[in-house]
């Protein structure tokens, strides 16, 4: 199921940095691998590394941006919203994320997550720590905090992620209903 991941990376780079960047990375990858990938195949995380290098941007920031971008893609956002009725519920049930991912994409390896909660903060750790996933998740959680309208501080803390919630209902949050508009559109077409 790598094709889906690779395409997501390509689309993220395209929508954030434009076609020229995507083309440059495609060419660079073709030179280093020695052959041109088929059109639309996207590129693996090496594509993010190449883009980070070209932009003189830390790798961690690149993965965070990608996580944030994912929460702005409506179908992905909806899937994440299904996992919690409010932001706190979403955080507490993040340990279900690998299981949910596995239901749909059995080949995708998602590190197992552990959630520990105190009054105002939630700590998310990975049983198999992985830097790329850590930063991707930071971006993703930050994006979802916006989506739910929560005010909080989200930061990498060692190999874990620490979320301090100041105000769960700070802003209105984005609209979410169980019935997908897409569904009714697709049934019609």
């Amino acid at each position: 199921m790598n094709s889906l991941v690779n395409r997501a990376i390509e689309e993220f780079l395209r929508s954030t940095y434009g076609e020229v960047m995507v083309q440059a990375i495609t060419d660079e990858a073709a030179v280093s691998v020695g052959r041109l990938a088929p059109a639309g195949a996207g590129f693996a995380t090496a594509g993010l590394d190449r883009a980070a290098f070209r932009l003189a941007k830390p790798r961690a920031e690149m993965f965070e941006d990608m996580g944030g971008w994912m929460t702005r893609i409506e179908p992905i956002r909806r899937l994440l919203r299904f996992s919690g009725r409010d932001f706190r519920d979403f955080l507490l049930r993040l340990d279900e994320l690998p299981g949910r991912a596995h239901l749909v994409l059995p080949d995708l390896i998602v590190p197992r997550l552990q959630v520990e909660a105190t009054d105002q903060s939630v700590c998310l750790s990975m049983l198999e720590p992985d830097e790329a996933w850590q930063h991707l998740l930071v971006g993703l959680i930050r994006g979802m905090a916006d989506d739910y309208g929560a005010l909080c501080l989200i930061a990498a803390d060692g190999s874990a992620i620490r979320i301090d919630i100041w105000d769960e209902q700070f802003a209105e949050g984005r609209m979410f209903c169980l019935q997908s508009d897409l569904l009714s559109d697709q049934v019609l077409s």
């Binding site: 889906l4 992905i76 899937l79 299904f82 949910r100 239901l103 169980l178 569904l183």
Partner: peptide, 11 residues
Amino acid sequence: LLFLHEANRGV
């Protein structure tokens, strides 16, 4: 069920 339905459709 809703999650699976939308996720499958997306994939």
